[in-house]
């Protein structure tokens, strides 16, 4: 069964355009990757999608999830991996990530890293995100804790 108004092709076309706008503008955001901070998992100039329902209705995020973190809006976002949640203590020792004094196994980090960062606790309401490519100097890599409300969703693949 189809609503009478959608029997004409122009109305059907308008409905498809509206549906695509809502779906790709608010539910499943296309992400054109620029930059190398998530290499080798995500290469620059690749494409993925941010699935926003993964953050709706208090849906849970897991350690290791790759998420899109918004800046002022949705046009430009960071693509990062969640490594810690509120209350946990994060530290880098000779390029290895330590959580609450225990070393975290990170099979997705393929490049050599020599970062050292003093222990710091993730504040309430925040998550700690880092890119997979830690071969660049720590000062040149955008990572750290951010408010959970800035996390727009997990990536689809």
């Amino acid at each position: 069964m189809i609503f009478p108004v959608f029997r004409t092709k122009w109305w059907r076309l308008a409905a498809v355009a509206l549906g695509a706008y809502l779906f790709f503008g608010h539910v499943c955001l296309p992400l054109w990757i620029r930059g190398s901070s998530m290499e080798p998992t995500y290469r620059s100039r690749g494409l993925t999608f941010c699935w926003r329902p993964s953050c709706w209705f208090g849906a849970g995020l897991k350690r290791g999830d790759v998420v899109a973190v918004r800046l002022a809006g949705l046009r430009v976002m960071y693509l990062k991996r969640i490594v810690a949640f509120e209350g946990e203590t994060v530290e880098f020792r000779d390029g290895r990530l330590w959580l609450d004094g225990k070393r975290l196994d990170e099979p997705y980090v393929k490049y050599p890293c020599s970062w050292n960062l003093e222990p710091r606790r993730v504040e309430p309401g925040n998550v700690y995100v880092v890119g997979d490519n830690r071969s660049v100097p720590m000062e040149n890599h955008a990572f750290g804790q951010t408010n959970r409300r800035r996390v727009m969703g997990r990536v689809l693949w």
């Binding site: 620029r34 800046l71 002022a72 809006g73 949705l74 046009r75 430009v76």
Partner: peptide, 23 residues
């Protein structure tokens, strides 16, 4: 510059939050 959010908190004053991108 992306995602410009423009507000006018008082006359002849604007507050703009935006994302700047340098490539």
């Amino acid at each position: 510059f992306h995602d410009l959010r423009i507000e006018f908190p008082e006359k002849d004053t604007a507050r703009v939050v935006f994302t700047a991108r340098l490539t």
